[in-house]
Amino acid sequence: MADLKVMLVDDEQEFATTLAERLRMRGIETVTAFDGEEALKLMAAQRPNVVVLDIMMPGMSGLQVLGKVTAMYPDLPVILLTGIGSTSEGIAGMKIGAHDYLMKPLQIEELIEKIRSAAAKRI
């Protein structure tokens, strides 16, 4: 998985940095962004293979970021993260182009499985 690069976008900085470290320990190169604007700026320079994006963020929401990402990088798979105890937001995201979604708190093994599946789809 050496060539796999993930961008993790979440305003919960403690969550994003800790999860990023765990992903790196499992051989997945991971960059973090703490809001939608930063993510969109970094995306062109970092060229991730998969984006993991929180839905509920201040400023530009996850779904707004998703809309921009799918318009700018139609082949770039996005996995949504939601803290909401229902699937409606995740499903709404998939309708506008997200590859998949996960509920917080997530299981890292499940996230990695979804990242692999998303990256494979892109190839």
């Binding site: 919960e12 969550f15 800790t18 765990r22 803290g83 708190p105």
Partner: peptide
């Protein structure tokens, strides 16, 4: 409850790390 989920996510990842 959304905030609680975020708290739990941080606790899980910190414990996991």
């Amino acid at each position: 409850t959304h905030e609680i989920k975020n708290v739990l996510a941080i606790i899980r990842e910190s414990g996991g790390l």
